[in-house]
Amino acid sequence: KLLSSIEQACDICRLKKLKCSKEKPKCAKCLKNNWECRYSPKTKRSPLTRAHLTEVESRLERLE
């Protein structure tokens, strides 16, 4: 599967780190437990900047 097509777990399953069936409108866990089942939009991760990478590398060197 391509990364862009990976389905996201519902908010509660993601928060509780449960295996989500990803069914809509309610996944199996939410249906069974009568929880409100919501699927928040995916958040875009910002790409690493060179400055951040350099900072992490220098912190790693100090720890070694």
Rank of each mutant, 00 (worst) to 15 (best):
I6N: 09
A9P: 03
R59I: 01
L53M: 14
C30I: 04
L63C: 11
L48Y: 07
R14S: 04
S46M: 05
R14M: 03
W35P: 03
K42I: 10
L53D: 00
K42E: 03
R50L: 07
K44T: 12
Y39M: 05
K19S: 06
Q8V: 05
I12N: 08
K1H: 07
A51N: 14
I12S: 09
K44C: 11
Q8K: 10
R50Q: 05
P41S: 08
L31Y: 13
L2K: 09
K26T: 08
K24E: 13
E23T: 14
C20E: 04
Q8L: 12
E61I: 11
K17L: 03
P47R: 10
I6L: 12
H52D: 03
H52T: 01
S58M: 13
E64T: 14
A28W: 15
R62I: 13
C27N: 02
K22D: 04
K16Q: 01
K22R: 11
C27A: 03
K32N: 11
R38D: 13
T49A: 01
K22Q: 07
S21W: 02
T49G: 02
D11S: 05
K42M: 13
I6P: 10
K32F: 09
L63A: 04
K1N: 15
P41V: 08
L18S: 09
E23C: 13
D11I: 03
C30F: 03
A9N: 04
E64A: 05
D11W: 02
L15K: 09
I12E: 12
K32R: 14
S40I: 06
R14W: 02
R45D: 01
E7P: 09
R38F: 14
S5K: 07
E57F: 07
W35R: 11
S58H: 15
L53I: 04
V56I: 07
S4H: 12
R50M: 05
E64Q: 14
R14F: 03
C30A: 05
S58C: 15
R59N: 10
C20F: 06
R14Y: 06
P41A: 11
K19A: 09
E61C: 13
R45Q: 07
K44I: 13
K19H: 06
C27F: 06
H52N: 07
N33I: 03
E61N: 10
E23W: 08
S21Q: 00
N33K: 10
V56Y: 08
L53G: 02
L53Q: 00
R45N: 01
K24Y: 15
S21K: 01
S21V: 00
T43G: 11
S4W: 09
R50E: 06
K44N: 10
K19F: 00
R14G: 05
H52Q: 06
T49K: 02
C27D: 04
R62W: 08
C30Q: 00
L63F: 13
K26V: 10
S4G: 07
K44E: 07
K22T: 02
E36C: 15
I12H: 13
C10G: 02
T43C: 14
N33R: 11
K24S: 15
C27G: 03
A28P: 02
S40L: 07
W35L: 14
Y39L: 05
T54C: 09
L2E: 14
R38S: 14
T43D: 11
K19L: 05
A28N: 11
Q8F: 14
S46L: 00
K17T: 02
K24P: 08
V56P: 03
E61K: 09
L53K: 05
K16P: 02
K29N: 07
K29E: 02
R62F: 11
E23Y: 03
C30P: 01
K17S: 04
C10D: 02
P47G: 07
C13N: 01
L53A: 01
S21R: 01
R38A: 13
P47H: 04
I12K: 10
L3Y: 10
L60M: 13
H52L: 04
T43W: 03
I12A: 10
L3T: 08
E23I: 09
E61H: 13
I12L: 09
I6K: 08
L63N: 03
R14E: 00
N34W: 07
L2Q: 15
C27W: 01
P47C: 05
L18V: 00
L3F: 14
R38T: 15
L53P: 04
V56E: 04
S4I: 13
L3P: 07
I6M: 15
C10F: 02
R62H: 10
L15D: 11
N33V: 07
L18M: 15
L2N: 12
N34D: 13
Y39Q: 06
A51P: 00
C13Y: 06
K16Y: 02
K24Q: 13
C30M: 05
K1F: 13
K16F: 06
L48N: 02
T43R: 11
E7C: 10
I6C: 12
P41H: 07
E23G: 12
K17Y: 07
L3G: 12
E64F: 03
S5G: 10
P25L: 05
K29P: 04
K22H: 09
R50N: 01
N33A: 11
L15C: 12
K26H: 14
P41L: 05
R38P: 06
L31M: 14
R50S: 07
E36W: 07
R14I: 02
E64P: 05
S4T: 10
N33L: 12
E61S: 11
K19V: 05
N34S: 11
R50W: 03
C13P: 02
L63Y: 06
Y39K: 01
Y39W: 10
C10M: 05
R62C: 09
L2A: 13
K1R: 11
W35G: 13
K1A: 11
K19I: 04
L3C: 12
Y39D: 00
C10N: 06
K44L: 14
A9E: 00
T54D: 09
A9W: 01
P41T: 08
E61W: 13
P25Y: 02
L53F: 03
R38E: 15
P47Y: 06
L3A: 12
L31R: 15
N33M: 09
K32Y: 09
V56H: 07
K29R: 07
R50T: 04
P41M: 07
K24I: 14
R59P: 02
T49Y: 06
E61P: 02
E55M: 14
L18G: 15
K24V: 15
C37Q: 07
I12W: 14
C27S: 08
Y39G: 03
T49L: 03
R38M: 15
K29I: 05
R45M: 05
S21G: 10
P25E: 08
L48A: 01
N34G: 11
C37S: 05
C10K: 05
A51S: 08
L15Y: 14
K1E: 04
K42H: 10
K24R: 12
L18T: 03
K29S: 07
E36V: 14
H52E: 07
C37K: 03
E55Y: 15
A51Y: 09
R14K: 09
A51M: 11
I6A: 11
Y39P: 01
E55S: 14
K26Y: 11
C13T: 00
W35I: 15
S58L: 11
Q8H: 10
E7T: 09
R50A: 01
K32L: 10
P41E: 10
E23S: 14
A9K: 00
Q8P: 10
L3H: 09
L15Q: 08
C27I: 00
W35M: 12
P25F: 03
E55Q: 10
E64C: 10
E36Q: 09
K17G: 00
S5F: 11
S46N: 03
R62A: 15
S40N: 06
S46F: 01
L18N: 14
W35K: 11
K16R: 08
R62T: 12
Q8G: 08
C20N: 01
K26W: 12
C13L: 05
L2V: 15
H52R: 09
N34Y: 13
V56C: 15
H52A: 02
V56F: 00
E64M: 13
K32I: 11
K22W: 04
I12D: 12
K32A: 11
A28R: 13
C20L: 05
S58F: 13
Q8N: 12
S58N: 13
P47F: 01
W35T: 12
K29F: 04
L3Q: 07
Q8S: 12
K32M: 13
K32D: 07
N34T: 15
C20W: 02
S4Y: 12
L60W: 00
P41N: 07
E64S: 13
K22A: 02
S40E: 05
C13M: 04
K22Y: 04
L60P: 02
N34A: 14
C30T: 06
P47D: 08
S40H: 04
E55T: 13
P41Q: 09
C30R: 03
R59Y: 03
L60I: 10
K44S: 09
C10P: 00
K17D: 03
A28Y: 11
K1M: 14
E57H: 06
Q8T: 08
S5E: 12
L3W: 10
K29G: 06
A28K: 12
L53H: 03
E61V: 15
K42R: 12
T54L: 07
L31N: 14
